[in-house]
Simulated assay, not measured.
Amino acid sequence: MLNSINTNPGALLALQNLNATNTELTTTQSRINTGKKIANAKDNGAIWSMAKMQSASSSSLNAVKDSLQRGQSTIDVALAAGDTITDLLMKMKEKALAASDTSLNSTSLKALKADFDSLRDQITKAAENAKFNGVSLVAGSAKPLVFLANADGGNFTVNAQTLGLQGLGLSTTGTTFTTAAEAGSMISKMTAALLTATNKLSALGTASTGLDTHLTFIGKLQDSLDAGVGNLVDADLAKESAKLQSLQTKQQLGVQALSIANQSPQSILSLFKG
């Protein structure tokens, strides 16, 4: 081995090994600090890009969930109004049946008519006021509502089910009575309107169930995407902790080795002592 005061191969080798250890130690400390084995594109460009795309998909699903939850609320309001309307129709049928009794005097008939007309008008109020965030599925002018279904902009459509008088086959002028005979004819109309209302509420209930199921799926999909991203970029902290201890020990030994290598040229001085 060349004995030189200009070049110290042993020290150079020791320094190379120490630098390599320091680089590994820096990487391990970064993983422990961030909790990620791939924190940026420099660590692994392909995996980082893949993880970013999946994270974007997962984040965009938050907007989908918000849209579907608004849909849930809108349908819930419509169903609540529908329950009220069916109750009103049953009461109207009861009033019409009572008024069809020919033994009633005119005062009682007028009282039943007033109750019947009042219940009829409440149907219109219930349908028009059944709005969530200004949107209704049961008002006379209600239109189908379209909500987000996926991160690509797909739609989930809920058809309107109008529960106002017109939607039930009734009207303000035609749905009333002044005689017992007219009251009798209202009984069948109320039965038909009640059947129409329950069918429309059944359709809304089916849409609500479908929306709830899709919302549950979106939640599971988002969890799966987040877990997938974690598998790609998250660090195994237990493994990194063990590696940190090893590298710290290796670093200390590397410093000692470099120190010993730097002392080698001093042995040449002994050759010049008389």
Rank of each mutant, 00 (worst) to 15 (best):
G134C: 09
L137R: 08
A242E: 14
S208W: 13
A261E: 00
L232V: 03
D236C: 09
E182H: 10
D236S: 02
V255C: 12
F177M: 10
K250Q: 12
L170R: 05
G154Q: 11
A197W: 03
L168T: 07
G205Y: 02
V158G: 09
A130P: 00
Q166C: 13
M186S: 02
G164P: 14
S171N: 08
T176A: 05
L165Y: 08
A235N: 06
G254T: 00
T216G: 05
G169Q: 01
L244F: 00
N133Y: 11
A207T: 07
P144F: 02
D236H: 06
N150C: 05
E240M: 12
L168N: 03
N159L: 02
Q245H: 15
T173L: 09
K189Y: 04
A235G: 08
G219C: 12
A183F: 12
G228L: 05
N133A: 06
V255P: 07
P144H: 06
S185W: 06
N159S: 13
L247R: 00
D234P: 04
A160S: 05
V229S: 09
T162V: 13
I260F: 08
V146N: 12
H214W: 12
A193E: 00
A139N: 05
Q263R: 11
T178D: 05
L215W: 07
V233E: 03
L168Y: 03
A139M: 01
L211R: 04
A207Y: 01
D234T: 08
N155A: 12
A139R: 01
M190P: 11
D236F: 05
A183W: 08
A183D: 01
P144S: 00
K200Y: 05
Q256K: 15
D152N: 10
N155I: 10
T249S: 14
T209I: 11
G205W: 00
Q248K: 04
Q245T: 15
L244I: 00
N150E: 06
L221T: 15
A130W: 05
S136I: 00
T191Q: 12
G154I: 02
L204H: 08
T175S: 06
D236E: 00
S246F: 15
A149F: 01
A235Y: 08
G153D: 05
K250Y: 10
K243W: 14
L253N: 15
A207W: 05
M190W: 11
I218M: 03
G205R: 02
G219K: 08
S241T: 14
L244R: 04
N159C: 06
G134R: 00
K189Q: 12
S202K: 06
I218C: 04
S246E: 13
Q252M: 14
A261P: 03
H214S: 11
S141I: 09
L221Y: 12
G134L: 01
T206S: 14
L258T: 04
L148Y: 10
T191R: 09
G154A: 04
V255T: 13
G154N: 06
S188H: 09
N155S: 13
S241L: 14
E182G: 09
Q161L: 02
V138D: 02
L247S: 04
S224L: 07
A257K: 07
A242S: 15
T191H: 04
S246L: 15
E128I: 09
A238Q: 15
L258M: 13
Q251E: 07
G219L: 09
Q251I: 09
Q252T: 15
Q166K: 09
V229G: 04
F177Y: 00
S185H: 01
L148N: 13
V233Q: 03
L244W: 02
E128M: 10
L244E: 04
T249Q: 13
K131L: 05
